[in-house]
């Protein structure tokens, strides 16, 4: 069971390495969206510091959502998904492996890039720390929840737009607690409460989202 998990994570990372352009699109998207806001709002640092948590989190949300489309789609097209469904392994383990690899490729770079971009917004060090931690807890949850939507819309026309319609309402708690943590830290209230809520959401989605995604995959692959 664990070796299947390792195999699949390894395979997906290897695939990502061989297609490095895919790897960077999500990251670039995140960087560009975050950098666009000062251009739209104005370079006033006080304003920027105020909106930074929200901007970063909304950008992370959109980036994670954009990346979802590729989560199962390629496996679906080349038939690898069929073989996953027929493998004598619990499907949720394989889903978990797919999501893990997906997050390592699309989520983690974004978390690492965030503090650098935070400097553009003149954020304080503790706020930057809170941002990294909240993204570290939140983006895996986004990938896990998003996997359900990606699995449900597999092979449908207009899948990308549809996925956002399905998944964005479910992302709201993560958005609220994620940006809340950064905000609370920046205003000196301390973000621990929010961060523990984020942690709770992550644990819940770790437990339930792979099962729901597996069910969705079975429905979609019929």
């Amino acid at each position: 069971m664990f070796s299947a998990f390792k195999t699949l994570v390894g395979r997906d990372l290897l695939l990502a390495m061989r297609r490095r352009s895919d790897l960077f699109t999500t990251l670039f998207f995140f960087v560009i969206v975050v950098s666009l806001f000062p251009l739209g709002i104005g370079p006033e640092l006080n304003t920027l510091r105020l909106i930074a948590p929200g901007v970063f989190w909304v950008a992370a949300l959109l980036a994670s959502m954009l990346a979802l489309e590729r989560l199962f789609a390629i496996d679906y097209e080349d038939g690898a998904l069929e073989q996953m469904l027929l493998a004598p392994q619990p499907l949720f383990i394989l889903v978990l492996a797919k999501v893990t690899a997906h997050w390592l490729v699309t989520g983690l770079p974004l978390v690492l890039m965030a503090p650098l971009l935070g400097l553009q917004y003149d954020m304080a060090t503790d706020a930057l720390m809170a941002m990294v931690i909240s993204l570290l807890l939140g983006t895996p949850a986004l990938s896990l929840i998003g996997a359900i939507g990606a699995a449900l819309t597999l092979g449908l026309r207009g899948g990308g737009v549809l996925v956002s319609l399905l998944v964005l309402p479910l992302y709201i708690p993560v958005l609220i607690f994620g940006s809340g943590a950064v905000e609370a830290t920046a205003s000196g209230l301390g973000g621990q409460g929010h961060l523990s809520m984020l942690g709770a959401i992550l644990v819940l989605s770790l437990l339930f989202a792979p099962i729901a995604s597996s069910a969705a995959l079975r429905i979609s692959a019929e």
Partner: peptide
């Protein structure tokens, strides 16, 4: 109909991944 092999992996890698998932 679909071969279920990944275009970016070599034949050996494909075969090994397949069989590992098959247990």
């Amino acid at each position: 109909h679909k071969n279920g092999i990944k275009d970016d992996l070599t034949g050996v890698e494909n075969l090994r991944v397949c069989t590992a998932l098959d247990g």
